[in-house]
């Protein structure tokens, strides 16, 4: 079966780490956000069936660089996370400005004040 590795990085290292993986011919498989003790962003890449995930924790204030400049198809993942979690992702190649899903609730996965 495939191997799974999670590598913790800082938000500032995202672009350089992604560029390294791009140069090594990794395929972007998914970007996942989990809201638990902060916004945990996981960028999963695959090569030869092995999965490598870059991970860091951020908040909704910090500006996160878009990786769509390297992986053009990241724009859908990034729009989804921006709209559902309220993560501040900047410079997405195609930015739907929180209208990808046209939902009536603003950032449904972002915890409201006082919510555990």
């Amino acid at each position: 079966m495939d191997q799974q590795t999670i590598k913790t990085i800082s938000a500032g290292e995202l672009l350089s780490e992604t560029l390294r993986l791009k140069n090594e011919s990794y395929r972007l498989v998914a970007i996942t956000c989990t809201n638990k003790d902060g916004m945990e962003l996981s960028y999963s890449f695959e090569k030869n069936n092995d999965l490598l995930t870059l991970r860091f924790v951020t908040d909704t204030e910090e500006e996160i660089a878009s990786i769509s400049i390297m992986y053009s198809y990241a724009f859908l993942y990034e729009n989804e996370i921006k709209e559902l979690f309220g993560v501040n992702i900047k410079d997405i190649s195609i930015d739907f400005n929180n209208t990808l899903y046209k939902i009536p609730v603003t950032t449904p996965f972002k915890k409201k004040e006082g919510e555990k």
Partner: peptide, 14 residues
């Protein structure tokens, strides 16, 4: 804490 599903059509739209 989380279930996340990335479906094939989501990947094929670009």
């Amino acid at each position: 804490d989380r279930v996340r599903v990335r479906t094939p059509t989501f990947a094929n739209i670009p």
